[in-house]
Amino acid sequence: MSLLAVEGLGIRFGGLHAVKDVGFSLKAGEIVSVIGPNGAGKTTLFNMISGVYTPGSGRVLLEGEDVTGLDPYLLARRGLSRTFQNLQIFQAMTVLENVMSGFHLRERGPVLADLFALPGSRRRSREAEEGARRLLARVGLERAAEREAGALSYGALKRLEIARALALEPKILLLDEPAAGCNAVETEEIDHLIAEVAAEGTAILLVEHDMKMVMRISNHIVVLDHGEKIAEGDPAAVSRDPRVIEAYLGAQAQESTHAHG
């Protein structure tokens, strides 16, 4: 059974049909990428899957259960975790606290025990801290643990957001342009990290503009253009697909024909 299935998903913003009848599915350990030109509806699709927008039509199934339109916090509790293209970080907290916040779902204990700092409560927060430090080491931020998150570089914040998403131990991880704004070395690190996480059984849905990265790590690619799915398949098949080539190069090719003609 697929971990995540999207069926006929669509949404309108006023007269604009931003996403129209898109469907695909993900299995455990699979890396699926959604690609397409700017404005194709990739982030909108992500926002519908993760509960930020309520879809106008279609369904989102998580382990066979209909979760269409559930609030993001409920999806997070069911094992769907995501990052944002434009970062959603607790700027006023330290790097460590940001990641620890991802542990709180499992950390939950009796309020009175917390108030009086009973041993159980202290143990829970120590475990969260240890777990958070392990994740920070994994994304290469262990040295920055005590720094205020707002002071980190953009590339570091990208990795911090991934670490926090991993703290929830998601079954499905949605990554919205994880490599955007990162240099070549950082991109490669993120690349490895994603492959590792997938190898542990987490399904990964990726939106990314770095085509080399997409082609290298994806098992399956879904191509959107003007809100519609125009192709899907393995990286080799997609990169040869004439409709994909047209969607990416068509406008430019036509423009240059006009210019020369």
């Binding site: 993001p72 916090y73 997070a76 607790f90 916040s101 709180h104 926090r164």
Partner: peptide, 8 residues
């Protein structure tokens, strides 16, 4: 938004 993401 981040709070929602971590399940709050």
């Amino acid at each position: 938004v981040a709070a929602q993401l971590v399940g709050i």
